[in-house]
Nucleic acid binder design. Sequence first.
DNA 1: ATCTAAAAGCAACAATGTTGCATTTATGTA
DNA 2: TACATAAATGCAACATTGTTGCTTTTAGAT
Lengths: 137, 137
Amino acid sequence: MSEASIAILKFHNLRITDCRVHVVKHFLEGNGVYSQRDLENKYRQYDRVTIYRTLNNLLQAGVLHRIPNESGMATYGLFDQSSTSKHRFDNHIHFKCNRCGQIECLDDREVPQVSVPKGYSVERVNLIIDGTCPSCT
Amino acid sequence: MSEASIAILKFHNLRITDCRVHVVKHFLEGNGVYSQRDLENKYRQYDRVTIYRTLNNLLQAGVLHRIPNESGMATYGLFDQSSTSKHRFDNHIHFKCNRCGQIECLDDREVPQVSVPKGYSVERVNLIIDGTCPSCT
DNA sequence: ATCTAAAAGCAACAATGTTGCATTTATGTA
DNA sequence: TACATAAATGCAACATTGTTGCTTTTAGAT
Ligand SMILES: [Mn+2]
Ligand SMILES: [Mn+2]
Ligand SMILES: [Zn+2]
Ligand SMILES: [Zn+2]
């Protein structure tokens, strides 16, 4: 599956490097949400600073998004890469299981319309749902 | 305004100490959301560990709640203390201004009903809106 | 006034984020 | 293919935040 990974990097005008290919591949295959820690553990061959910078690069390029997290450790998810997806550059729902800790993107769900007080303008909406996932029920 | 602060601590069966009174007072007066850093800067007379533990105590007692934040720094807000508030122990909306960085609780807004895929159960919903606040428009 | 559990202060350490710099590498061009 | 150059990597160093253990101090009950 390096092909898909490389294609994504090329599409975003990023140089093809081993670390980037591996990281994107990890997101593509896992279909989940990962912290820098997760990637460091998986790919010991790269310096943690390289992974840190890789994540930042992918974030800035719009390949990944960062997910707000009350634990204080940043987590990252792949943007839905299909051009038809409404959620590509859009609002987003995440589900966090309070049992196993797993965070998932619910890409297929619509973020409900929200109203804000007069004077506020909305740029992005992050909806984070806590609860129990199917595997932990 | 120490009175209100002390009343809250008593209500939650917490000992009345200078640090706790100051911290709760800060939240009461500011009506905003603050990080440990903010409180350390404001109240230099307390050790940062004391403020850290104070925040944790208030969190556990249910005086404060912690707000998910993609920056990786924990932020805290006061729970609406009015007993009639629907949001006292409930779901919650926060607004973060991308210009000035200020985070606010929108206590008077309802969190919209959300549907999750089959097999998932919802315990809590956090809605974080990014945009521009009235002062920065 | 005394007692005791709780809180505060201090030192130490862990985890994560961040930057500077020398070296290596990817990629466009001759 | 070889070369030039900007970008990426690895490594060291440091900043910030979170966390714990232990001793001293203190709040609140008796
Ligand atoms: Mn996501
Ligand atoms: Mn709040
Ligand atoms: Zn689970
Ligand atoms: Zn603002």
